[in-house]
Design a protein around this nucleic acid. Structure first.
Lengths: 177, 177
DNA sequence: ACCTGAACACCGTTCAAGT
DNA sequence: ACCTGAACACCGTTCAAGT
């Protein structure tokens, strides 16, 4: 902090817009450094390694989504947050076990279930998080495949049928529409 | 075929046992070549690139699991197949959109739903596949984190509580125990 | 037909050294 | 405190050349 060259926040900023431009497979430490006009080694002053940078990116992607909402609305808000950035689901899911990334996401759902008086908020949240992450991951994979032309539908068609898939799963897992 | 040096099957064999040994992050084309006693470039005679090798690996992991079973048994068999190999879920999920990898898995579930007289077997299969893949991916991530010690449970504890999570989600998505 | 050898354009990370 | 420069040990992939 305090006007110095770069903070961890500015690195996450750069990484996030680079993610939207080029996608996760091409998101290298060297590219992030390049976007900041700095040597790759400079990043390691602010960030321990690539894994922790991705975890910070995951936290930023999840953001404040779903705070204080009902279970279905929390799930919808988290879905929207993941789908808002290219490969957002893969970033979040890949750091989910670190507690860092998605203690966040699963925790958010746990709060929603607890507020709704669930008898086992922890299990309910785990199950819904697994569906939510699997859903978003596969949706984004399919959208990318559709963009490349390797899939038999346009990105628009994928987006539409995909939301109905989500609502179907959500209704089944939460017990009602 | 025909007694030549290596087939694509022998490459998948080597890749699969290497996967169990070292995990997906360390599974490089160069390591696979090394395990076969061959130069890395030799692999490209049999296989187009790493992505298609991973797709073939995914097909091998899914195998014949769940053929002709009821929906819940198909789901359980597929779960067991993914969990049987280190990072199995990540391999399968990462190639799921290619039709190559998990036209397989999702198709298997679609067949089971269709045989059970589902009104929308395609959607039901998509939703269950998303849960199944998200579940297995997160379970394996958690088991690995537990093995490293970065997680607050032993691998055994993770495996146990995890199966109950799966049955809870499965019951909700299929409508009954 | 199948493989080697060498090369190309990359990686993540470390660490002395500069300022 | 923060960054550069150079290095280390790797990647996936291509392609001429060998057999």
């Amino acid at each position: 902090m305090r006007g110095s060259g770069h903070s961890v926040d500015s690195i996450v900023d750069a990484a996030l817009s680079l993610l939207d431009e080029i996608g996760l497979p091409d998101l290298s430490m060297r590219r992030v450094a390049g976007a900041l006009g700095v040597q790759p080694s400079a990043l390691y002053w602010h960030v321990e390694n690539k894994q922790t940078l991705l975890a910070a990116l995951a936290d930023r992607i999840v953001g404040e989504a779903a705070a204080g909402a009902s279970v279905p609305d929390a799930a919808r808000a988290l879905r929207a947050a993941l789908l808002a950035h290219r490969d957002g689901a893969e970033v979040v899911v890949s750091t989910a076990a670190l507690g860092l990334g998605s203690g966040s996401l699963e925790g958010r759902l746990r709060d929603a279930y607890a507020a709704a008086g669930s008898a086992d908020a922890a299990r309910d949240a785990t199950v819904l998080a697994q569906f939510l992450l699997g859903h978003c991951y596969l949706v984004q994979q399919r959208m990318q495949a559709a963009a490349i032309g390797a899939y038999d539908a346009t990105p628009g068609e994928v987006a539409a049928s995909t939301e109905a898939d989500f609502e179907a799963g959500l209704a089944a897992l939460t017990g009602a529409p």
